[in-house]
Simulated scan of single mutants.
Amino acid sequence: MESRYWPLYGLVLTTPRLELRLPDLELLTGLADAAAQGVHDEAAMPFSVPWSDAPPEERGRSVFQYTLGTIAEWRPERWVLSLAVVHQGEPVGVQGLNGTGFAVTREASTGSWLGLAHQGRGLGTEMRAAVLHLAFAGLGARFMTSSAMTDNPASHRVSEKLGYRPDGLETAGVQGRCRTLRRWRLSREDWEERRTVPVRVQGLESCHQLFGLP
């Protein structure tokens, strides 16, 4: 899908096993289905915004609405890029890249979810590696950040594997409870030293203005 009014639809990231792109309505429906089928154990809550604590249909609808909202609310000075992650032709999750004042700070953060049926195969590492390449090699980032609940070891393993360094703790109120998140920070130098996943980026040049870049 291409649009001269919204060239981000032509942005595609490709890794050995995955394709990441802004979802059209058909792909977005598939993502909603993947979310409805479950993204984590019901006894846990890995997100600071507990969107996944809902019945399947409502969970899928929230993914649908949130993704469309990121497009509607996009500004060059504050943006959220929510890319569908496609594996073997099937949408399996979302990899986000978020920037506020990116043109000045050259710093952005990531967030993601992966369908429960597709976890444990290294796809989480590969999809985050894809947007790190986009940020550093494509957009000229200096730093990338991430955070996860302290009781989410899978996310911390991904950060460590990709070269992030610990960056302190923060607290958040989630579902009426005080939760602790561990922050991570990745410099361009550490990314260059640790990157191992080959990533191909297509369609970025026409998107620079939307990211606030010349």
Rank of each mutant, 00 (worst) to 15 (best):
E160R: 15
L13R: 02
V104F: 12
P50D: 01
L114Y: 07
L139S: 07
L27N: 01
T67P: 04
A137P: 00
Q95R: 14
L83V: 11
E107Y: 03
E2K: 15
S155I: 06
V12E: 06
E2A: 15
R106L: 12
P214W: 07
A32N: 04
E19V: 15
R61E: 07
A43W: 04
V94N: 13
T70K: 06
A34N: 01
L97M: 14
M45L: 04
L116C: 04
V86M: 08
G173I: 09
Q202G: 06
M127W: 15
W79G: 07
F143P: 00
V131I: 15
G96T: 13
D167K: 01
A148D: 09
R21P: 00
T196H: 13
Q95T: 14
L204N: 10
L8D: 01
L123P: 09
L169P: 07
P214G: 13
P91Y: 13
G30Y: 01
R59K: 02
I71C: 05
G168T: 11
P46W: 08
G138I: 06
P23M: 03
S82K: 10
G176Q: 14
E73A: 08
A108Q: 10
H133D: 13
A84L: 12
M1C: 02
D190W: 10
D41R: 04
L210Q: 11
F102A: 12
A117C: 06
E205M: 06
G111D: 14
P153M: 05
A34I: 01
W79N: 07
L210A: 10
E126T: 13
A148P: 06
A148F: 04
L116H: 08
R194M: 14
T105H: 10
V39A: 01
L68Q: 08
T67L: 14
L25M: 04
G212I: 04
L22M: 10
Y66H: 09
T105M: 06
G212K: 06
H40N: 02
E57I: 00
D53E: 04
V80Y: 12
G38K: 00
G89L: 11
G30H: 01
V197S: 05
D24S: 01
G176L: 13
G89S: 11
A141W: 05
P7M: 05
E90V: 15
L181V: 10
R182T: 15
L83G: 12
D190T: 11
W113F: 09
S187E: 13
W184P: 15
L132K: 02
W191K: 12
D33T: 05
V86I: 15
S155N: 09
P198H: 08
S82H: 11
T180D: 05
E90S: 11
L68A: 03
D151N: 13
P7Q: 04
A32V: 01
F47P: 03
S52F: 05
T14Y: 00
H133V: 10
S155Q: 09
R17P: 03
P55N: 00
T67I: 15
G93W: 14
S48I: 06
Q95H: 13
V85E: 07
L68M: 06
M45K: 00
T29M: 00
L213T: 13
Q95D: 12
V63C: 07
A135W: 03
T150V: 14
L20K: 02
S159E: 05
L162Q: 11
R179P: 10
L134K: 12
Y9C: 00
L181F: 15
R128N: 09
P91S: 12
E77N: 13
P166I: 11
G138P: 04
G30D: 02
G93T: 14
E189F: 03
S147Y: 08
P76N: 10
A117T: 12
Q202H: 08
